[in-house]
Write a protein that binds this DNA or RNA. Structure first.
Lengths: 398, 398
DNA sequence: AAAACTTTGTTTAGCCACTAGACGAACATG
DNA sequence: CATGTTCGTCTAGTGGCTAAACAAAGTTTT
């Protein structure tokens, strides 16, 4: 049933507008909020009073006069609560504690290899435990937990498949909700990264951002019209398995000529082995070492990166032609090879994307390092918390 | 500036809900509307009274009693106004006059070859003139004109580029608005087709529909979360120029290995020439004749279609992996070869799409024949008219 | 057939959030 | 110090919604 419209909805919507205004333009006075979003001064006063009661904002001292009474400045209360964001990688686990603006208060990281679901779960529990324990006192405490997973997550938050972790049909959401009694959001790693990039990355004003998570495999997160597009069942963005070579080599997905066979970290390492740069048993067979080789002037390594950048460009062209985005951001591990990839990538795009797509189009690498996913799920958690807080609070009955 | 929330917005939203309910569930009583959308009976009565005054609905006789007073049934007034939809093709022009439910009242069609912009414009004017002249008397008359164009349209309705018509930077919207004094919507042909398919085609309940317009070229219209996604500048869906073969043949777009070099009508005809089925000067060199050949048992023609269907499948796999849609609809001229394409197409998709994408996924051909585009733009026009009508009407001052 | 119950649609009273505008407080300016 | 400006609050009024009463028009029960 569609939601009907009534007074509560109006108030909720306006309160949300006021809070956003204060978040994004702080410090700001009541009068300025009113004139800028077009609400009556009295209405704003009343909504601000609600927000103050809820500790989501606070008053600082008086601001500068502009020829009359000095305004009382309002600020978003970053520290009214904290969110936890977890990024589960194939061989690492990254946890962050952020305030309500997404500023990182604490970061916990650990690496591993070939751990089972149970073992990773334990690592996650201890990470979450220590993050919760170190959260400072605040009106709302820890408001929720977000988890990014390198796999397919359906609309109910169930993990259907995470091939690189060998996970299938896991209800991690319920496990965490029961253990911690907090709202939990499980999201695909690329989707979360896309949102992290929108909220904390370069193009925070952009409505259409495509985040290409290029790691062992390739996943894509789609921010369309300002919100995450998840598809009918939550499986959108599986662009790693987009065919870019019709009768190309077989992929483990069953398809042929998939993009990630050409442009992923795995593809890069495989060709490095084929070209004899590494032995397939070589311990140094990883991306950082390959970057090191390129930096020390190894022509072969440089050529490999160039090829990868070119192939990345092929897929990104397809993305641009499909979505006409304002921004394409490349993140995850391959972003660390930015310097060695960007030239050939940009060349491919400049030469081959349709001319009218090129205006106002920004293609770049993530500047959030390894953080977009963890920050993205934390941001989801915060957003969820705030939207609940906009609703009228029930009386608590004991 | 973001729109603020007030009483008008509430009323507008609720009136819209009531109208939609009546449109989709007619005949229906006031009481049923109230209970189904969750509004108070009194509120519904008041909104219904507004809608009656505006002639958008009407009361029919009493319905069947369910154990009490017999209800007064409400119906959407299809005939309260009419919309015009124009589909400009490369060698045809199709105009329809529809009622407010999109039912076709009149259809005008003409074919041509190699006409200039001015000449096509004249044909369009005469089509529109005769459609307007034949619209029956109604409370609101003709409520607007929609035009679908085989090219790139920006967000302001300006036609940036229609390669097959050799059009560039034309402001057809203003021309029509000034001539007819009616609201005009210009939309890309594939976008309009997608919307037509959503409103009048197979999957009217689907929120995510991808419409593949396969004609001379290939364009794609995207219905995501129930609305048309147009991208940052209106250039989304240029999937005809998606690379499916990295070092494939050159396309006129500058790119290599574009999908439409393999799966479009043009590609099919080109290979027909190459294989000697036609001479390149042959007058019969068109799709209907090729279909005829296949129907008469020509093995070579059948094989060509099979190949085309396979290539269509390649691109559709990419679409499915990208969008996780509920439905993919293939329309435009290639849809007429449905019987000869579908087997190899379905085979390709079944073998290669990711397994979890296959659930609840429907891939089919348009059943609206040549009409999706014209119906789509007409539907846009109607929607626009109705949304204006939901707003409180100003007093008219003379 | 009368009485009792149901359902529909209108009406009334009341509520809630918003607006307009008055107002006092606090500050700047001449 | 007088005047003007700006900020924030307060009050009265408006509009749309809800809840509940009510009349009208049915059906069902006795």
């Amino acid at each position: 049933m569609t939601k009907t419209w009534n007074h509560q909805v109006v108030k909720e919507g306006n309160k949300s507008l006021v809070l956003d205004k204060i978040k994004n333009n702080s410090p700001i006075s009541r009068a300025a909020v009113a004139s800028q979003i077009g609400l009556n001064k009295g209405t704003v006063s009343s909504l601000v009073s609600d927000l103050l009661d809820d500790h989501l904002i606070y008053e600082s001292g008086p601001g500068e006069s502009s020829g009359g009474r000095r305004p009382v400045m309002l600020l978003f209360n970053d520290l009214a609560g904290y969110a936890i964001g977890i990024d589960i990688g194939v061989n690492y686990l990254l946890g962050v504690l952020t305030d309500l603006s997404g500023n990182i208060q604490l970061k916990k990281e650990c690496s591993f290899k070939n751990l089972s679901y149970e073992e990773i779960k334990e690592k996650m529990f201890s990470t979450i435990d220590s993050l919760i324990a170190s959260a400072p006192d605040s009106p709302h405490g820890v408001v929720g937990i977000g988890v990014g997973v390198p796999g397919v997550v359906d609309k109910d938050g169930e993990i259907l498949l995470a091939p690189n972790l060998k996970w299938r049909n896991l209800d991690l959401k319920s496990v965490l909700e029961e253990k911690y009694g907090l709202p939990v959001i499980i999201e695909n790693e690329a989707n979360a990264g896309a949102y992290g990039e929108k909220r904390f990355g370069a193009g925070q004003e952009c409505e259409n951002i495509i985040y290409v998570s290029a790691g062992i495999g390739i996943g894509v997160g789609l921010i369309l019209n300002g919100t995450l597009y998840k598809g009918s069942n939550g499986f959108s963005g599986e662009l790693g398995h987009m065919t870019i070579q019709v009768h190309g080599p077989k992929c483990r997905c069953g398809n042929e000529g998939c993009w990630e066979l050409y442009a992923s970290e795995q593809a890069l390492l495989d060709t490095a082995v084929q070209s004899g740069l590494f032995a397939s048993t070589d311990e140094k067979l990883d991306l950082p070492h390959l970057i090191q080789l390129a930096e020390s002037g190894n022509e072969e390594a440089i050529a490999l990166f160039k090829k990868s950048g070119d192939y990345l460009g092929v897929g990104i062209n397809n993305i641009v032609n499909t979505f006409n985005p304002q921004q394409v951001v490349i993140g995850n591990r391959m972003a660390s090879a930015k310097n060695w990839l960007s030239e050939s990538l940009n060349e491919r795009v400049a030469n081959q994307a349709l001319w009218f797509q090129q205006n106002d189009l920004i293609i770049g690498f993530s500047e959030l390092d390894t953080l977009p996913t963890a920050l993205g799920v934390a941001a989801f958690t915060i957003e969820n918390f705030l939207s609940v807080r906009m609703q009228p609070q029930q009386a608590i009955f004991s």
